[in-house]
Design a protein around this nucleic acid. Structure first.
Lengths: 186, 186
DNA sequence: AAAAATAAGTCAACATGACTGACATAAATG
DNA sequence: CATTTATGTCAGTCATGTTGACTTATTTTT
């Protein structure tokens, strides 16, 4: 690899030395995320979908009855960008839309049976990866990790994220039954 | 795909309750990364660059003298994809290429002065964000976090990542001086 | 010395998923 | 009735990824 002139490349980085450890975390986050998205990306490929579809399907599955506007707020993309992938997911039977009961302008989004299954299939390798990583970090590390990731979120969005995790959690618990309780899960 | 562990109910959400907490981590990672890349993305915009330029410039800055092949291996993209952004970075004076001393087929990559500066500017908000998050998680959390993120990397790549962090670290240490010691840092 | 392998660059075509801006439609709200 | 809101859509652009084929320079192998 490096020829033999490893050249003691100096540096011009500037920052003193409070950085090194933090820089490692920055890079580790890059590598972790790179690999975090790989397995789902591969599965998506078989369906002709991309990462954008994954995100939409994931949040709709976790928060059935979600509105388009909610999704836009979570993903921080434009209506037009979302529109394209959402349309595909609807057309191919992974998501259904239904007018809101009290406000019929709203289009509430629900996963279909196929949608649920694909969402599960996509998140499975991610859960597995996280599970193994937590395991290897020592059980007591879980709370540190959650706290850290939570703090990495932009402060203005933190409360919102908390709410999402809360309500998503409720859903996760009831999962197997109640498919019909909340809406059309076809 | 049989995921793995005990799937009592066999169907969609199914997983008993080892999932909720892990699912939270999965989503937190999404939100954390979403916000992790926001500030740099904004800066890049002013330069007419995108996130791809950030990644290239970052690793070249942290590992001066790196070869194109090394970069491809880190970023996991194709030569053609890299070629486009690298060419722009070279054309606009952020990176310089130099034939390897022992193997003149290689094009060793070095950041220019401008390149260093931009790289620093881009990573600064990320370091700040990580610093604050670590701070808020308790100092002893730092090792948990590093361990977790490290374990999130695909096992096959872990050793490689370790080497990168090592050599990158060396770079960080020498920082202030020796700008001229080694290669072309123009 | 000739042949093969390697490092890098390039051309062309294409897909995805972002963006902007303008406009359409339906329903709720004042 | 007028306005606002929630959503959808048309049209065009850009950034960044992909394949595949091919070139050039250089090193390594035979």
């Amino acid at each position: 690899m490096a020829s033999d002139a490893p050249s003691p490349q100096g540096k011009q980085s500037a920052h003193p030395d409070l950085e090194p450890a933090l820089l490692d975390l920055v890079e580790l986050l890059f590598f972790a995320y790179r690999d975090f998205t790989r397995e789902p990306d591969k599965i998506l490929d078989d369906f002709g979908f991309g990462r954008a579809h994954h995100r939409v399907l994931h949040f709709v599955n976790r928060h059935p009855g979600m509105r388009v506007a909610d999704l836009l707020d979570i993903l921080k993309i434009t209506k037009q960008s979302l529109g394209r992938v959402l349309k595909q997911l609807v057309d191919e039977g992974f998501i259904v839309q239904e007018a809101g009961k009290t406000d019929r302008r709203e289009r509430r989004l629900y996963p279909t049976q196929r949608g649920c299954e694909l969402a599960e299939q996509l998140v499975a390798p991610q859960i597995k990866r996280v599970a193994r990583a937590v395991e290897a970090s020592g059980k007591e590390a879980r709370s540190c990790i959650a706290k850290f990731l939570h703090q990495m979120v932009r402060e203005a969005d933190r409360e919102h994220v908390d709410k999402l995790l809360e309500t998503g959690k409720a859903h996760g618990d009831v999962s197997t039954k109640s498919s019909q309780l909340r809406g059309p899960v076809r």
